[in-house]
Amino acid sequence: MITLYDYDLSGNCYKVRLLLALLGVSYQRHPIDFYPGREHKSPWFLALNPLGQLPVLEDDGLVLRDAQAILVYLASMYDSSGRWYPAGEPALLGVISSWLMFADAITGTASAARLHDGFFYDFDIERCRSGAHRLFRILDEHLWFSERSAQGWLAPGANPSIADIAVYPYVQLSEEGGIARRDYPAIRRWLDRVKLLPGFVTMPGILSLPVHA
């Protein structure tokens, strides 16, 4: 049985829960008291992940840290369709990896702004927000062109990939860090598309959309 060391309000934990739900893979959650308990910095957790970060995934003796790495593993291991991380297509894998790095940059800006506003982290909030807006501009233009040339996902082709799942949460949660999305219409449409994926699940702060609409 897969174990996810998890925190409800973490977007990086949520993206793992989201992919597990989309793949229909069952797992058990081990809740970590991230705030205010700082359990992710406790000795027992540091033994599991020396970086002291969530999420961590355990599967059949394998211990994996970093949300993006976990997405790669889960899609490679459990997606029989091969669509979420297409192993046989090197160019596509390269593109997907570049968006996984982009997701990390989103974590360093939009997620950091949310940690500042909601969890009282001592970050330079203006720097976090302006950094997020810089990334959102790039994302918006990319998605606008993707809507015209393909199906409007981050990587080319007809199907969403783990790139979309990796980037989605902290973009959707950006308003909790004071980062409005009004100026990014293509991003807003893409957020709707993710919400309409079969098997989509929410987290606190994210509303679902009616699928039948």
Binding site: E147, R181, R182, P185, R188, R189, D192, L209, A213
Partner: peptide, 16 residues
């Protein structure tokens, strides 16, 4: 305010 392509079915476009 926007282009016709900005308004796909079931989407709510936001602007000021």
């Amino acid at each position: 305010l926007c282009s016709r392509e900005d308004l796909p079915a079931t989407h709510i476009f936001e602007t000021d």
